[in-house]
Design a protein around this nucleic acid. Structure first.
Lengths: 227, 227, 227, 227
DNA sequence: GATGAATGAGCCTTCATTCAT
DNA sequence: GATGAATGAAGGCTCATTCAT
């Protein structure tokens, strides 16, 4: 359907020889953006290769199979995401509220919410075929993220008069973040990133009003003409 | 790899002649469950036909193209969802809190969260960014749902001392519901449906504590052995 | 390398619909002649299809895989060969010498030694990859042929003063026939079929001089200019 | 499917520099055994290289093309075979019967009937009809062998009362040898080498009873359970 | 309405060959 | 000499679509 794109990640003919790792990263980045553009299932090796300005044979030289290319792409994304929140957490102050704010904010760092990456994540979540792969590659890291959130929530005092479970609180915060990601991909016109962040801040304020201030008023997107 | 399933939606050899609409619904149901099992991209007309106990040629007789089959399947799901919450809303009392409770509860009605349907929804979301189908088919109905939620939230008094924006509140509630749906498909071991509902109730209680009671303690899934 | 041949087994565009079995036989015959022309390993589905004047997709519709096409082709050849000698045997008189003569003569019946068929047999014998297939498909039939030869040889009186083992005699006769087949494929210019038959007759005369007359003098092929 | 074998012809990492001829022989031997294991058509340069413990690039350095590697491999086998019977002949006594016995015996020398070599020969025979390679490489040597056999047979007195043509006799003996080779590759369970030799001796005894003694009784392989 | 034979575009993959190091 | 990255032609196979029955 869609025209194959001109090489994007390789403006000039790339050097014939490149370090093994650099080539692999180049191909993985091309894969991420092809998935974003075409969808996971409609991504072909030829499209990925064209985007990278290389031949499809080279992809198989480096990754053996298409399945494996996808596995390593997902692994690359998962590692990137994992490092992102861990670095943010390490940079935050010792107070649990600061840590929680840091983790939530990190989920909206520019490299994380780059449209190509969000689209790739959603593509991996969506397909039944990719679900076992997803569990294999991301299961542990997702788990670590969830546990970390719960630990921090457990260290904060719940609102007076309630008995907010830290597991519930952590889950809710995660769902709101994940949900805004999904919204950014599926609804059009999407609300702004700032608006997404304000939604998360509102959730924080509701969960832990003693530590977070309520968010200001939301902006309202203009209504779409019916499709 | 996967064995083609025996026809499940056609317990008996179906009669060679059936009303046009009944046939279409039969084929759409087979499509939903094939998408759930195989993923959207690996769903073939032959698989759908086999599940329905019919020949693949008949699908094209009724739907012209595969793309169109998918469009009508999504449309069928969207209509079903739309009717579900509208019926629930009509049955609820006049108080906005009752209406909100009814809408949230409706999202967990048995036919809505049937695993096959959830999986099909996720599949359509997963490729929403790369193809205009989703917006075309669901855009208006999604919009109507969002507006309805916002209207109800606007009719409820926000927690004392805060200025919770009804748009933000409605969005957050929707994200939590949507997020639990996604969780049910992607995380393993998944938490129970009851647990998902308790999460939504907790969100309601936090948004509008004057109308909804706080949820009890969450159950905790057994940790996975993975390192 | 070689140009794909024009359709040979389908002088005119074939009818769009044909009985399932007729189509399969047509495709198997095209396979035999393609193997003869290209060799087993260099036979492609496209070549077979072109020779039959049909599309490659149709081959897979009827045979599922290329492997299976080859299996059924070999099975077809084996069945043809098996029937050939059994019919000849049934038509021979009751005397073992007549039966032995009939079996040997049958191995040179026109349909059996058609060059395309001989070449196909040799191709299946030659490739290590096809050996398990050959055993699966032909093992029992080969066995039956060998046992039949041995039974007949055991019924004949060996030459005076010797103790010719019927197993040895049967094997030797079989080797000579098989060897002339192989010669017809690999040496050039090959000796004539009549010459091959005379060689077999000479072997018969030597094994059982009481029943078979010695062969007349062999013709000698002209020497080839060295390749 | 098949696992690529560990390097067997290169017990130690081979020295990075080796005489041109030694390298070529090393690669040819690796080719022979790869053909034996995989078949001619499924033999890839990478497999040959791996078996030799070298890189595939080196094969093309030495042989230019894959076709040429096969040509030189066949040539190497043909030369080896040629030398084998010529040496045996030279070592035999002056009597034609001794010479004939020597040639027949030489065909069962250990290096000649090594399974890898037999399999490679069969592979080349199997596609001889479809490609001129075999005739080009082996035509003259095969011819020389045949003429030599005929010369010796002509020097022996045929059995009393017959007029056995030396051309026929030589051909028959050659066919029996060749046939036992083919049997060793294709039938399972194969009879023993000793049994093959006894078959050849029986043929000698029948052709020239004045010079060769009749063979003892054949052993009989256990029948296969197949129906 | 319904079936299934037939077609052919396009996919992943293999692998001989080229070439920079 | 030797390695291995890179290319691209060609193969088997899948599957939406067409069409005769």
């Amino acid at each position: 359907m869609t025209e194959d794109p001109a090489p994007v990640d390789a403006p000039e003919r790339p050097p014939r020889t490149m370090s093994r790792d650099a080539r692999r990263v180049q191909l993985i980045e091309a894969t991420i953006h092809t998935i974003a553009a075409q969808g996971l299932a409609w991504t072909t090796l030829t499209q990925v290769a064209r985007r990278a300005g290389l031949s499809h044979g080279l992809i198989l030289w480096h990754f053996e199979t298409k399945e494996n290319l996808f596995r390593e792409t997902l692994s690359y994304l998962a590692e990137e995401y994992h490092l992102n929140w861990q670095v943010a957490l390490a940079a935050a102050g010792p107070h649990p509220a600061d840590q929680l704010r840091a983790m939530m904010a990190a989920d909206f760092n520019a490299p994380i919410i780059e449209p190509g990456r969000l689209a790739a994540w959603c593509a991996f979540w969506g397909e039944a075929q990719s679900r076992p792969l997803y569990q294999q590659v991301c299961g542990d890291k997702d788990d670590a993220y969830i546990r970390q959130l719960e630990r921090i929530c457990a260290a904060l005092t719940p609102p007076a008069g309630t008995a907010l479970d830290p597991v519930l609180a952590g889950r809710m915060l995660r769902l709101v973040v994940q949900g805004t990601w999904l919204d950014m991909m599926t609804t059009a016109p999407t609300y702004s990133v700032a608006e997404a962040q304000r939604t998360v801040e509102a959730a924080l304020a509701m969960c832990f009003p003693d530590y977070f201030a309520a968010a200001p008023t939301a902006e309202r997107p203009a209504p779409t003409p019916a499709g």
